[in-house]
Structures are given as structure tokens and as C-alpha cells.
Nucleic acid binder design. Structure first.
Lengths: 138, 138
DNA sequence: AATTATTTGCAACATTGTTGCATGTGAGTA
DNA sequence: TACTCACATGCAACAATGTTGCAAATAATT
């Protein structure tokens, strides 16, 4: 388990450090999306706020996690599936955000439909954000 | 023109004031999405920051504008089409955000495909965020 | 024109995110 | 294992963004 995490970090040419290991662990456990604030809480404030910001940035750059667009202004992050990092294709994500509890679910099994863009527009990425009430809040 | 704006405000039971008229005007002109910062600039700082925040909140509540989810955390707003305010149906929006210049386009002519949600999830709204390079930046 | 309800601006604060720099730690090498 | 160097961390200070309470100003109603 810890080994697996170390592997991921090394593959991305990142040093294996306490904060990175811990944060990656959190993502694997949570199985959903995390915002900066969530991570701060779950790590019990053992890491500096700045470190968390930088770790998240690094992870995004290396393609380990990706951001999820939200309408309230809190960036959320989720683990990338393997395909993300290949770069051979569009990054497509479907997420569900609960209006009630704010939990963000990755709906990986659903495919993003193709969107026909007007002339001159190039698509790099497509996100579908469905919001409403989740199964725990109904 | 000004009359039309006053009409919209009255229909929502809002007093017709300088800031509200001006901000609504901006939305009608821009024909795209605006963030708080854009509005501050375009109004030449003649209105207090707080007023702009509150005006935007009010407009959202009244269904005059809607928020657009973004991955950088800056909330953007755009005018609602008439259907928005009826509430008889899902609110569906397709937007294109340019990675280069940040301009947000509303792609109203494109329909959001139906997303099949897992059991227990209720959809209130669906946003499709396509990002990439727009026609001006290619 | 006077009254009332609403809106605005100010001040103060809270939250979120960024940058520079000194210190500490991990990874590679002798 | 000890040494070196690159990189990661924490701290401090700052910048941007958003919120709240309250008094003054303005719009709507009579």
C-alpha cells in the first residue's frame, strides 16, 4: 500500500516525502474528490498550508490528480485514472456534486458525450458537472 | 434598452438602482460570462466591492443570472435564458472556457445530453465545461 | 412631501491562495 | 555510512477574494 504510493511518486520523478505520501493516501481512501480544506482537516494540520497547496499543484502538473470545476469557489481535486496521464486523448470527467452535503462523486463509468464545437475552437478537456441531491441526503 | 432592464428588475421585485442597472447592462453587452473582477473593472470602480457581490448574489437568487463552474476558482456569471427562471425543468448549460485568454462562451445551441445517474441521485442541474483554445487564440 | 422598506458604502474581518527565503530532508554518490 | 546537492518544507508576509454588521442614502409607497 505505502509501497504503491511510493511507486506512483517515483514514476513522476518526485521525492517520497511524508506530506506527499499522506496526501496521496487520503485521495486513495476518500475515493472521491477533496478540496484543500478537507485535506487540511484530515491531516490534522500537521502540514503547513503552503505545503499542501504546493503538493496539490505538483500532483496536478504530474497528472496524478486533476481539478474539478465547481460553482462555489473551492477547487476540488480527484485522483486521475491511468488514462489521464497518457495525454493521447481528451480528458473527460463526469462528476456529481451534492447541493446538500457538498460531497463530490466521480462517475467514471459514464462517458462524456461528444460536443460539437463551432469552427475555430479546439477542445482539450470536457467536464460534466451534475448537481442535485445525492443518495445520502435524499 | 434601459427600460427593458428596469422591467427585468421589477419583474423580480427588485428596486431599480444604479448599480443593478449598470451590472445588468454589462451582462447584456458582454454576451458572455463575467467574473466579479471583470465587473469591478468595467464599472471603473464606481461601486463598492460589497455592492457588486451582493448584486450578483441577488441576481442569482432571482434567476436573472447563473453561475458557471470553473476549475480555477473564480466564479463566473452569465445571463439566464428565459427558461432558467421557470424552474419546470433541469437547468442545463454548455460553456467553453479558453485556456489562453480565459474568455467564457455560452454555447446555447448545444443541448446537454442526458446523464444516467446511479440509484438515489437526483439531478437538479447539469453543466458541461469544455476547455481548450478559442477561435481568437488559435 | 413624508414615511417606510430596501440598498449602499464603509470598516472590519475571514478565508483562500501566492511568493521569497532560510532551514531541513531525500536521493544519489563516493 | 558519510557527503553532497537538489529539492521540499515551514515561516512570514502579502495579495486576492468573499462575508457581516451597521449607519447613511436612496427607491418605492402613501
Amino acid at each position: 500500500m505505502k509501497n504503491e504510493i511510493a511507486e506512483i511518486l517515483k514514476r513522476s520523478q518526485l521525492s517520497v516525502t511524508g506530506s506527499r505520501t499522506k496526501i496521496l493516501e487520503l485521495f486513495q481512501e476518500s475515493n472521491g474528490a477533496l478540496a484543500h480544506a478537507d485535506i487540511e482537516k484530515k491531516t490534522d494540520e500537521s502540514y503547513d498550508r503552503v505545503t499542501i497547496y504546493r503538493t496539490l499543484q505538483t500532483f496536478v502538473e504530474k497528472g496524478i490528480i486533476h481539478t474539478i470545476p465547481t460553482a462555489d469557489n473551492s477547487i476540488r481535486y480527484a485522483l486521475c485514472k491511468d488514462e489521464c496521464s497518457t495525454g493521447h486523448h481528451h480528458d473527460n470527467h463526469v462528476h456529481f456534486i451534492c447541493d446538500e452535503c457538498g460531497t463530490t462523486y466521480c462517475l467514471d463509468n459514464i462517458t462524456v458525450p461528444e460536443i460539437a464545437l463551432p469552427e475555430g475552437f479546439t477542445q482539450k478537456r470536457a467536464d460534466v458537472i451534475v448537481s442535485g441531491i445525492c443518495k445520502n441526503c435524499e
